[in-house]
Design a protein around this nucleic acid. Sequence first.
DNA 1: GTCTATACTACGATAGAC
DNA 2: GTCTATCGTAGTATAGAC
Lengths: 212, 212
Amino acid sequence: MVQQRLLEIAIAEFAAKGLEGASTRSIASAAGTAMSSITYHFGGKEGLYLAAADYIALQMGDSLTLALGDDRIPEGIGAEAARGLIHDIIGRLIEKMTGPKSTSYSLFIMREQMEPTAAFERIYGGMMEKMLHVLVELVRIATGRSDGNTAEVTVITLIGQVVALRGSRATVLKLMQRTQLDVSATTVLAARIAANIDAILDRLIAERQELS
Amino acid sequence: MVQQRLLEIAIAEFAAKGLEGASTRSIASAAGTAMSSITYHFGGKEGLYLAAADYIALQMGDSLTLALGDDRIPEGIGAEAARGLIHDIIGRLIEKMTGPKSTSYSLFIMREQMEPTAAFERIYGGMMEKMLHVLVELVRIATGRSDGNTAEVTVITLIGQVVALRGSRATVLKLMQRTQLDVSATTVLAARIAANIDAILDRLIAERQELS
DNA sequence: GTCTATACTACGATAGAC
DNA sequence: GTCTATCGTAGTATAGAC
């Protein structure tokens, strides 16, 4: 399938060099076809970029929502169970962000985060939105905090720790004195983040009890 | 000063569109000069990019190391004082990352983090390295943890929360239901991050006592 | 030092052959 | 459907006028 090949190579190119930096010619040549194929199949560079975003949303969404089985939070779930689900989802996110397979996906999304285009809405609406709101609700259940936007802010700091693994990759490697994030390094980081999550949630609960 | 004007406009352009996306013609024209001035003063686009990196390292370094007065950690500092310094430095980092003035600087650095070029070494060596190692040492002092690379990993998760404010800006805005990060939103986020820092450091201390 | 003019390359889009 | 050929545009670099 030419379209499939074009899409996958395009994602890698867009992730590495950005929309402007990537060239349709080199993408097409890497896919073993002519540049005009992109025009034919996707309508042009812009269309290819948007199709890449949809493809990413699909791939990432599939594996992330697996944590819930369904996309819905189980009825009447307890604080402990909610905390467990938070760990599940964040754990999967870490795998996604550090896994070699989805390097391009993560970079593509990070670029869109920094300078959102129409592609961001597709990725956000297709996948992130669900995951984030599930996390917010789980934090509410796990901590009993519904004041202001405490839960939202907490989720931001939780995923921030994960996103940094990719977004500040160069600094992470320097600090860990590695040239790449191998399994052992990832394990250590994941364990620390998990411990941080518990520490943060516990603190939120303690704050709540002080408030009342 | 033509060079100064060129540099500042170049940083904004590079930050917004990346190295490939920015154009020397538009940078020069925005600076009210001819494109060949860039060749004359900086040797070309690449040289301008590296000069921009040096400029950023200088500007950011100046204000960040202010937290310490000197670049050195005071002799015989206690755990509580170390924790206070951690809060100081992270607080300044938040100001830097969210402040409107340094938007371009942050974006420029984030791009280099994702896809490091020669410019990254200049920024990292000139400013970040010192700050990060100071933070690692402060975490060691504040928690009494010198096992493995616990301190390094912790610092990664701490700054990750801050970096996300810029690196995942689009998602942060969606979750906070804002169109921009105003002072009130930043205040809430900064307070949460500060609380998280205490929670994480306390957890590290508790773990240490379990270990012994 | 700064600008104009020009050379050269690479890009994306498109038309047309097959 | 896929490729070749070509067009117009925009990029960087460079030489030379002032």
